[in-house]
Write a protein that binds this DNA or RNA. Structure first.
Lengths: 147, 147
DNA sequence: AAGTAAATGATAATCATTTTCTTTTACAGA
DNA sequence: TCTGTAAAAGAAAATGATTATCATTTACTT
């Protein structure tokens, strides 16, 4: 499932970028915590366990790079920071997110359901959809049944 | 269509808030520019034409208040600021936004299309949707046929 | 092994937003 | 209409996430 180092290296090299230990470490964190939605600072804290000397700017820079390469996507909830997540290679679009207003959990939903709508947007409004971002806010199962 | 002063006043008073000239001025701007998606600073610049002495913090504070009262909603595109828009009184949910990656225009789409999906989220995952936020990124009609 | 472009780390800068605090204002009650 | 008071406004400082700068180090080409 996880991308191996050789693939990562060739992906970097084809864009003129270099394979560094820091980049590998950052990628590993995001891969390992794929169900979490870590923000830059949280990723920084994790990476520091392996690379105590890494700087926060390096994490910011590389997350931007990873997004440009299509490796990750960011979401913005309303807590004032970007949260990053690995983008599966087979996903055409970013998946949807359910945000529980009680516990704050973020749940991924792979099912798209928007293809028909996007066709309508093209035929009726002439708007060609390249990507979408969908967030549902509400109450998760756990919090519904909790006392 | 626009809310009158008496309604605005009673809405404020029922929450223990006061009717101020600044609040009226801010509300008017947002109502007048309902198809735009102004950010706080832009609203501030507009309001200053009528109230040169108003402070930026006042605009921030009142936009927060208006959102709490359900008068406006904010969207976050990726330009690093909150953009505000009047929420029609008949809308259950925030409407969807089409963001053109070429010209940057933001187009509103009133049609919901998600009711069925939200029912599925409840029955299959136990997640109760209270609100959603949907953005489509792509190319608008104008930019598709330009040149 | 050497040269070079790219990356890193440290730090300062930026920019949107929030907080603090003093002054002003809206409005309820006399 | 006048007065007291809680809320709001204005100004300025503080905060916090993100970005830019720059000297040093590193990855990779030849």
């Amino acid at each position: 499932m996880n991308m191996n180092t050789a693939d990562f290296e060739s992906m970097l090299h084809s864009g003129g970028y270099k394979l560094t230990a820091q980049r590998q470490a950052i990628l590993e964190i995001i891969q390992d915590e794929k169900d979490k939605h870590l923000c830059t600072e949280e990723i920084y804290d994790e990476v520091k366990k392996a690379y105590p000397r890494i700087g926060l700017a390096t994490v910011y820079r590389n997350l931007q790079l990873f997004e440009k390469l299509g490796l990750v996507h960011h979401i913005m909830l309303d807590d004032g920071c970007m949260r990053f997540q690995i983008l599966g290679s087979q996903e055409k679009h970013q998946h949807h997110h359910l945000v529980c207003e009680v516990c704050g959990d973020v749940i991924d939903v792979e099912e798209d359901m928007l293809e028909l709508f996007e066709k309508k947007l093209l035929s009726e409004m002439g708007f060609t959809v390249k990507d979408h971002r969908v967030q549902f806010f509400g109450i998760c199962k756990k919090c519904t049944y909790k006392k």
